[in-house]
């Protein structure tokens, strides 16, 4: 009887300890592991994008240059807010070995073209109507931006509206190339 009582107390104590442990992990655990981008540090998936001007652009042809890939949609408010920032950043970096690419997803062509005329985006822009490029990059929303170094590795991912400081930070990382380790994805 006494042995059973002691076992019961021990069991209750262990259960409470386990629950507290889980609670603590949920509160203070490494939250960055909840939504990591498994593609950081790996080779960027290659794609051929049909641009709005009719030309075709292949990512693997851009080796030796840092690449910024921005996924956007005309109906997305943060995309409108960041469009002038991207345009300004592109103008700032275009003398350097840097390429900006805009990929329009979950949208229709007319709205996308009207958006580009209104909010800017003179760098190469094209549509991914089937969302295949977006899914290949693990895109889960718009705007989402990927930064690729000259060796073709993904060195950064930013989910959300960009600012010029954020673009500068990641472009610096991208231009540093292979010297740099993968940058952790920001929290959405």
């Amino acid at each position: 009887m006494k042995i059973l009582g002691t076992t019961l107390k021990l069991l209750t104590f262990l259960i409470i300890l386990l629950l507290l442990g889980l609670f603590g992990y949920a509160l203070f655990g490494n939250r960055a592991t909840i939504h990591p981008s498994p593609l950081l540090g790996t080779e960027a998936p290659d794609f051929t994008l049909k641009l709005f001007n009719g030309e075709k652009l292949r990512l693997s042809d851009l080796r030796g240059k840092a690449v910024l890939i921005n996924f956007w949609a005309s109906w997305c408010a943060p995309c409108r807010e960041e469009a002038p920032v991207l345009e300004a950043s592109w103008r700032k970096y275009r003398e350097k070995p840097v390429v900006f690419i805009g990929i329009n997803i979950w949208d229709d062509k007319d709205s996308a073209l009207s958006f580009l005329t209104r909010f800017g985006g003179n760098y190469p822009n094209g549509a991914d109507p089937k969302g295949e490029i977006a899914i290949n990059y693990g895109v889960a929303g718009v705007p989402e931006t990927y930064f690729i170094d000259p060796t073709g590795k993904i060195v950064g991912k930013y989910a959300g509206q960009l600012t010029s400081e954020i673009v500068d930070y990641f472009m610096e990382k991208s231009l540093l190339g292979s010297k740099n380790t993968a940058v952790r994805e920001n929290e959405r």
């Binding site: 997803i105 089937k130 969302g131 295949e132 899914i135 889960a140």
Partner: peptide, 10 residues
């Protein structure tokens, strides 16, 4: 959602 439709197509 568009993403889910795209994923089903893939």
């Amino acid at each position: 959602s568009e993403l889910a439709k795209n994923m089903r197509a893939i």
